[in-house]
């Protein structure tokens, strides 16, 4: 029978990752219920206390509420951006992989390559710089900076997912079942969407989690530079940037606590992404971490070594940590 994708088994790393993400979501939800991120509650910055578990910021606003708002904003921007990237990149990649070696493949991949001529974060910054940070008005619709940041980050990831999808599709196309189905007269479209796509999803999903980690980082970086969402709306990057001016006054909580929440998010998605990626057969090397390496002792030689080595050498699929 054709291989069915297995649900990833979570190792220790995976559980830690899940815990981090859950903690991140917890802060985001509980904090929002805690108070108003805009209201001025204390006359100045105050250390963490029972009333204000994260303390207050330089204008006297509750930091937990602001961190929570920031965590939520960062989260939805990143989910939207990765969703957009997958929605655009995956079909492109599958199409290119299906037409592997042909002109369409070449054209698609070359154009995707051009998008990667700038390092990813620089590219995203460039797009934001183009669009400006002020609200844009298209008739009755006002587009704030949040959706534009999501769009820019998403666009930066499209080449990435296109390649992952293409690589996975190429491998799938070589499988026996595809030739068999073709021989049976099943139309190509059905082969693609019914059978191939199902097997292409898992690597894409694994990469999506890793990409989430980068997206959270990138969104934080943009806000840090002041190119992200406008005040008084908080994002984690905003808070870190504002905190930069406060540490010298001795207000340690301002810089460390929102930053820790940010790290939780990135770390969680990183660990989850690795575990998800590690839980299935690596026909295409989609990451630097080799599932085989830690589990194997040097004496154990995988039988497929002669065939696997050429395929295991990673293609130009970029591994996640392109930014930072």
């Amino acid at each position: 029978m054709r291989p069915r994708p297995r649900l990833p088994r979570l190792g220790v790393a995976g559980w830690i990752g899940l815990a981090c993400v859950v903690l991140y979501l917890l802060v985001a939800t509980v904090g929002r219920l805690h108070g108003d991120p805009v209201a001025l509650v204390t006359p100045g910055p105050e250390a963490p206390s029972f009333a204000h578990p994260f303390g207050t910021d330089h204008l006297g606003r509750d930091l937990l509420a602001r961190t929570a708002e920031g965590a939520w904003t960062s989260l939805w921007i990143c989910v939207t951006s990765i969703g957009f990237a997958v929605a655009v990149g995956m079909p492109l990649g599958v199409l290119a992989g299906y037409r592997h070696g042909g002109r369409l493949d070449g054209v698609l991949m070359r154009s995707v390559e051009t998008l990667q001529a700038l390092p990813q974060f620089v590219f995203v910054m460039f797009l934001i710089g183009l669009m400006g940070t002020a609200d844009m008005h298209f008739g009755p619709v006002t587009v704030g900076n949040g959706p534009r940041v999501a769009f820019a980050i998403g666009l930066g990831f499209v080449p990435y997912f296109a390649r992952v999808a293409r690589g996975a599709t190429v491998v799938e196309m070589r499988e026996d079942y595809v030739t068999n189905l073709r021989g049976l007269g099943v139309p190509t479209r059905e082969i693609l969407f019914r059978e191939v796509l199902v097997n292409v999803w898992p690597p894409v999903l694994g990469q999506a989690l890793l990409a989430m980690a980068i997206a959270v980082f990138a969104e934080g970086g943009l806000s840090f530079l002041g190119l992200g969402v406008a005040p008084p709306q908080a994002t984690l990057g905003n808070l870190i940037a504002d905190a930069g001016g406060q540490i010298i006054g001795g207000d340690w909580w301002y810089a460390t606590l929102p930053g820790t929440v940010l790290v939780l998010g990135i770390l969680g998605f990183n660990l989850l992404g690795e575990t998800a990626g590690a839980g299935r057969p690596r026909a295409v090397g989609t990451g630097p971490v080799r599932r085989r390496a830690p589990e194997q002792t040097p004496e154990e030689i995988p039988e497929e070594t002669p065939r696997q080595i050429p395929a295991q050498i990673p293609t130009q699929i970029p591994t996640p940590k392109e930014t930072q």
């Binding site: 980690a213 970086g221 870190i240 905190a243 810089a255 930053g259 990183n270």
Partner: peptide, 12 residues
């Protein structure tokens, strides 16, 4: 190391 944002570490 991969999960610590440089801008945060730098500020600290």
């Amino acid at each position: 190391a991969m999960s610590l944002p440089g801008y945060w570490l730098a500020v600290i």
